[in-house]
Structure formats: C-alpha cells, structure tokens
Design a protein around this nucleic acid. Structure first.
Lengths: 194, 194
DNA sequence: CCATGATTTAACAAAATTGTTAAACAAAAG
DNA sequence: CTTTTGTTTAACAATTTTGTTAAATCATGG
C-alpha cells in the first residue's frame, strides 16, 4: 500500500498547511489537525513520530514549494518586466491559498524552527544580477539589488497579511477591500517601474 | 498605593508587550510573562483576572500607542513629503522596539481578538484626503488613496517582519542585512515619490 | 506603629496537550 | 484465503497550563 501510504501522509501535511497557513492557526494542536484531516490523532504519530516532526515536514514542503514556484518564474527566459508581472500573479495566487505562509514561517524560524537547507538559493543570486542590469538600463530605481525584490515582496504580500488591521484603519468592508486588492497589481507595477 | 499599583500593572503590560511584540512569542504562558517581569504569576491574576484579559489590555495599549504615534505625525501641519519622511522614521524606530507588533496583532485579530474601537480612525480619513490632493499635484502615483498608505506601510514594515526569511533567501549575514536596512529609508522615499 | 494594600509562597484542582501502548478492525496484495 | 499494512478505538501516563485559594510577608501612608 505504498501508494495510499504516501497519499494519507501527504493529506495530513496538506491539511496542516491549510490549518497553519490558510487559517493562521500556527499553534493548532495535533488533535485540531487530525480533526481537520478527518483522521485519528494516533495516525499522526504513526506517520510523524511527534508534533515537531510533523512541523518539520510541513515547513520543508512549504519551503520547497515556494522556492520551486519562484524559481519557475524568476529563472525563466522572459523579458524582465514580463517576468515581474508573472511573479506578482504567482504571489497573489499563492496568497489567496496561504495568506499566513510567510508570517508563519518567519515566526517559526524565529522560534527555533531551522531551515534544512542553509545554502542561499542560487537562482536568487542569478536573478539579483538581472535586477542589477535592469537598474543600469534605468527601467527601475537604482539601488542595492535586493531592495527591488524586497519592495516587490513587500508591496504584494504585506497588504494581505494585515488585511484585518487595514480594514479597521481605513474603515473598509469586505467588498471595498476586495476592490482595492483587485487594483493592487497595476499599482505595484507602476510603483516598481520608472 | 494607587501609584505603585498602576506602576506594576503597567510594568506587567509592558513586559508582555516585549515578550509578544519584541521576541515574537505570541503564545507565551502567563508564567513566561511573570518570569520576564520578575514577578509572581499569581500577581498577574491579581491584576488581570485571566490570561485573556491580560491579552486584551496589552492589545489595547499597543493599538492606542500605534494610533497616537501615527496621528501625531500624519495629523501635523507639515509639508506632505516631510510628513512622510518623519512617519517612515517613526515606523522604523517602532519596528526596532516591536518588530512583531503588526504581525501579532493581525494574527490575534484573525483568531478572534476583537478591536475595542470599531470606528475607523478619523485622522486617517483626513490624511487620505491629503494623499488625494498630492496625487492631483502629481508628486505621487495616481491611484485610490489607500494604496499610497498601503505601499508606505508595506515597504517599511515587511522587510523587518521577514528578516530571517530574507536573510536565508538572499544569503545575507547580520551585518549585511543591517547595511540594507540602513539604506531602506532612501529607497522607500524614492519608491513612493515620482 | 499599624492598617491597608501589594506581593509572594504554597498547594491544589481542572483542563488541555502530548505521547505511548495494545487491541481490534479494514482493506488490499500476494 | 491469509498476510501485511493502514487505521481506528480506547485507555492511560506525563506534562503543561490555567485558574483558585489561603496564608504569610512586605512596604508604605496615615
């Protein structure tokens, strides 16, 4: 039953990802996750020895997915602006699925969850060079290249993270916030490019 | 002893804010907080009936501080650009003290922590009008005014939130990240203004 | 100094959570 | 059909956490 094996194991991981990264319940119990997965709590210990090891599996999968996704766009052979546009799309789509992903991973890293792969990603180093070239062309603001990517991530991700806070601050209801979100991509592109 | 009274009560709140918003340990126990405050756990129940009520007090204080700070700058009679510059300074300073503030408040709001004051802030509505005027002048990108403030918050706050994630992604050590942070203000101003 | 409120100590009950074990049951593979 | 593997059930121990209580001690204002 190697097939079903992996299937259930992955189902538990996926459910945990949903609980952590979609619902933002980073300190959900093993029982919570078992319930959400429609599975007995004992089964979680059967596949993952402990809560910590389930965490490890979840974070490793999330990390790999994020990197693969970023790489597939940023590493592609595309005109720079087109590439950024696509990447914004990818990020926005992922945020709909996992609004709490970055926030959770950061919190966890801060509280001792280590990254398995401590090596910086190579594709990112390559992309940084591409950014530098673009700065020389004058299409984007001249600065240390990481700033461009920081700006990109910030502008896309942050408004999703603090949605409830923003709704209160600006006095926006659900629909009004939806409307703003729809405008975001254009605003972001205009902000990033000269 | 009304004086000492409030003193200790505030000390506990301040300590909790430190634990939550500086260290990012949002699910610290009452014992953790008592220890950090150098105080007996029973005393926490003496001042705050329950963990939840301590939470309420902490979040209410954080919220009021944030609003007061924002208001004092954004509500001041200053040229627009100068105002934004000052606000970036204020935000950056606050982030050094409480890097996990926004992230924590958002997570908590999502998990049921309600805002006492559900009324949107008036000063923000006024400031939004100021932003609209500035857009008409052409000094900043033309869009729905909230976008400008979203951009501002995003660009300043997000890189702090995901510092560990960014360090890994870009392969930056502590000093290198410090250097980037120092450059942030200029980059942000250049990004926000045409 | 003494009365009052602040703070600690100790001890405890109740609940929640994690982790373990053994037995039973289900389903699919050989 | 029988063995193996996946899954559930039940019961339990250990730990952590919250919340409560009563008594003792400390500090200070009147």
């Amino acid at each position: 039953m190697a097939a079903k094996d992996k299937k259930t194991e992955q189902h538990i991981i996926d459910t945990a990802m949903h609980v952590f990264f979609t619902e933002g319940r980073l300190h959900a119990t093993t029982q919570d996750i078992a319930d959400a997965a429609g599975v007995n709590r004992t089964l979680i210990h059967y596949y993952f020895k402990s809560r910590d090891q389930l965490f490890d599996a979840v974070f490793e999968k999330a990390r790999l997915e994020s990197i693969r996704e970023a790489q597939s766009v940023l590493g592609a052979a595309l005109p720079f602006r087109k590439k950024i546009e696509q990447f914004v799309d990818v990020l926005l789509k992922r945020l709909e699925t996992y609004p709490y992903l970055e926030i959770s991973m950061t919190t966890s890293m801060h509280n001792g969850q280590p990254f398995r792969d401590e090596v910086p990603e190579i594709f990112m180093q390559q992309f940084l060079q591409e950014v530098a070239q673009e700065m020389n062309k004058g299409t984007i603001q001249r600065a240390t290249p990481v700033h461009f990517i920081m700006n990109l991530f910030s502008l896309v991700i942050y408004p999703f993270i603090v949605k409830p806070l923003n709704q209160h601050l600006f006095g926006l209801n659900e629909q009004e916030y939806e409307k703003i979100v729809k405008e975001r991509k254009t605003v972001i592109m205009n902000t990033l490019f000269n």
